[in-house]
Design a protein around this nucleic acid. Structure first.
Lengths: 211, 211
DNA sequence: GCGTACAGACCAACTAGTCGGTTTGAAACA
DNA sequence: TGTTTCAAACCGACTAGTTGGTCTGTACGC
């Protein structure tokens, strides 16, 4: 079996520490000490501490953006697309919670050239959500009164906020949480008609409860 | 007319800078330079930079907690209470956006003794929301399938997330944003019956649109 | 012998906080 | 009203500790 590379060990250790103490609460010396490496080893793998921060950001946003794009392509109706995107978004917390914590807390400290790249992907993600919402309204599945931007940002906000409270060993599984989110979000968006649609109502908790 | 006190000038300047560059991106020297004060003046008014950070946190959370408590006392039904709380929450952004940005970004850097005090109030706020949701379910206004904790944290998350996108001079007024939030949230919570209730439906956008 | 991967002592810059000193303003006194 | 007093408010040069980053050296695979 291949030994775990130093770079990965550094990232892993850094994530654990950043999540607990914040980017500025952790020194490079501490990171290398805690994973049995050295200053030299660190700066051999990263140009700077900032680059490590960027790397963490990039891994997460790239992954979640891909997942959303995949979901968009895989499904054909706005409701299914939205639910799949949200479900994938929620499920990322299972793997990448420390990344997301860093992403949401420390983005302000990214150096401009890094921040730009990250913002581009962040913007793309937002636009996918907005797009699906517009399509849903267009298709008369979502209520016409729904303000696309506010609804979209609310969805992003409520899911992202999980980084403040989600515990992998909490009482609810990640799938249950995703289902709960989808139920709340669909109820806030769907027209009365659409709720009666069988294809759609499978995402609502009331019907899960019925079985 | 009384000259604005130094302490207030320091806080104001610090907030502007913290919002833009983050707590760790701003030095005490920079703060005092930018508001025409001195190191001595700063440390005469604050025990430490950490105390300034705490002060900013406390001003916001104390204010918003009071507002929620007032709203809870003033209204008597779960729906009205919830809408009033959310409305007050959203409206705080009008006055305290820099505070809230700092509150949401830098809380991790509060020293333990300060963090404890803040967390207590933060917890109280959460409990008020949970309480109203439980009352709403109890009173059959909110759907029984709604998971109180997830719904409550979603509400807190979607509103708090405003600090990432709200611009005081944006296209929507703060009142419109509050109304949009209330519409989304109520649609996700209310039973079909409750939506037909006149007292309740006044908080829904579809009826605002009707007029 | 040569490049890649890493070690660890070292450095230069930065920054929170200090400390002796000065200003101010209002009360106490003459 | 003019003067003294004294504490609180404020100033700014200085310091001590910290921290990101460098540089020289070494071990090892090819």
């Amino acid at each position: 079996m291949v030994e775990k590379q130093l770079k990965d060990r550094i990232i892993e250790t850094a994530l654990t520490l950043f999540e607990k103490y914040g980017y500025h609460g952790v020194t490079v010396d501490r990171i290398v000490a805690e994973c049995g490496a050295s200053k030299g080893g660190f700066y051999h793998n990263f140009k700077s501490k900032d680059e490590l921060l960027y790397h963490i950001h990039d891994v997460f946003i790239t992954y979640v953006l891909n997942k959303a794009q995949e979901a968009y392509v895989k499904y054909k109706t706005p409701t299914k697309r939205l639910c799949a995107i949200i479900r994938s978004f929620v499920k990322v917390f299972h793997i990448y919670k420390p990344h997301i914590t860093v992403f949401n807390q420390e983005a302000a400290y990214l150096k401009p050239e890094y921040a730009e790249k990250i913002n581009e992907k962040r913007e793309q993600y937002k636009q996918i959500i907005f797009q699906v919402l517009r399509e849903g309204i267009e298709a008369k599945q979502f209520r016409t009164e729904v303000p696309v931007e506010i609804a979209g940002l609310s969805i992003i906000g409520m899911v992202n906020w999980m980084y403040k409270w989600y515990k992998p060993d909490g009482p609810m599984s990640i799938e249950q949480i995703a289902a709960a989110f989808n139920d709340l979000i669909l109820h806030s968006l769907l027209t009365e008609e659409a709720k009666r649609d069988e294809d759609v109502s499978s995402f609502l908790l009331s019907h899960v409860g019925d079985k």
